[in-house]
Amino acid sequence: MERPNREGSPNAWVMGILAWLVPGLGHVAQGRVIKGLAGGMAVISMFITGAYIGGHIYSLPDTSEGLLSSLFGLCDIGTGLVYLAARMSGFALSEQPQRAMSEYGSVFLMVAGLLNFILALDAFDISAGRKP
């Protein structure tokens, strides 16, 4: 059975952007509450763990580690408003090389962003009719 194609519909974009801004909200807004909550909790847990063990977030104009820093910043931005709130409040901004697992922490923060990008694309796909 052919599914309706609503890729160009504004609703799909709204769902995708909502899901990116607040982890899980794109699914919750489409009535998939458990999926949204579980996904959002996973992303936020990943972010909090990363910060807790000493990781720090990068920004796009950051060049502290060459061009890779911008790529890391792009990954971090995936957590949407969580990233913005962390930047504005100064949370997890400074590098803590004295802590043994700070590098892992930064990876956790980046992966949190990447996972949320996946969730946002999934919310977009569902709203666009590409997924059941």
Binding site: K35, A38, G39, A42, V43, S45, M46, T49, Y52, I53, M101, Y104, F108, V111, L115, I118, L119, D122
Partner: peptide
Amino acid sequence: MRHFTLMILFALLVAVVFALVG
């Protein structure tokens, strides 16, 4: 937190999202 615990936590959280989406 031990490295092993971190690895388990990482695998768990990634598996949750992949399972939900996949």
